[in-house]
């Protein structure tokens, strides 16, 4: 596969602040399933128990600093995917969470500019191939840094396990 596989993502923004940790994304009491949809039904329950009902398929999460901190639970990116979210943009991402997103194929974009200038309810268009994000509500446009080459290979393969199998690890 090549980078032409990258799809353009358009969705409505749900804006959160700093330090959205994985306990807030999916409280530990729900870590007894691997089913994305079931995990997604509890998405962001620690922060807002009614959040899932507010999400339409393809919506975008925008957070502040240190998004995904805390527990290594991969259930967090799975819940985000299963809850209908197409992409997470944040000012900065915690290390394990970022790695997990790459491994499970959830699109993550690190951008302090977008994080700071985006409001709840804005509509964003994320074009990874062109390396840009357009805020369709405000009319602002942002360029985003490409993933490191090594990570891009994992993403293009559809996640870590596919990459390792394809490369004969």
């Amino acid at each position: 596969m090549s980078d032409t596989e990258y799809k353009t993502i358009t969705g409505k923004v749900h804006k959160f602040g700093d330090n959205i940790n994985t306990d807030l994304i999916i409280p530990a009491t729900h870590l007894v399933t691997t089913d994305e949809i079931e995990l997604g039904s509890h998405l962001m329950e620690g922060e807002d128990p009614h959040f899932r009902a507010k999400v339409n398929e393809g919506d975008i999460l925008v957070g502040g600093k240190d998004f995904g901190s805390g527990s290594s639970r991969e259930h967090a990116p799975l819940a985000i995917k299963g809850g209908g979210i197409s992409c997470v943009i944040a000012e900065s991402f915690a290390r394990i969470f970022f790695r997990n997103c790459i491994n499970v194929g959830l699109v993550v974009v690190e951008s302090p500019e977008i994080s700071k200038s985006t409001n709840d309810g804005d509509e964003l268009c994320v074009d990874l191939k062109e390396g840009k994000v357009d805020n369709l509500t405000s009319g602002n446009s942002f360029s985003i840094a490409p993933y490191p080459e090594f990570m891009e290979k994992i993403i293009n393969a559809g996640g870590l396990i596919n990459y390792l199998i394809q490369t004969g690890a």
Partner: peptide
């Protein structure tokens, strides 16, 4: 260091980590 489940599962198969 802490990693996610996929990294751990991959390392259980390959014996390696990036």
């Amino acid at each position: 260091t802490g990693v996610g489940s996929t990294d751990a599962g991959a390392a259980m198969a390959t014996g390696k980590v990036w």
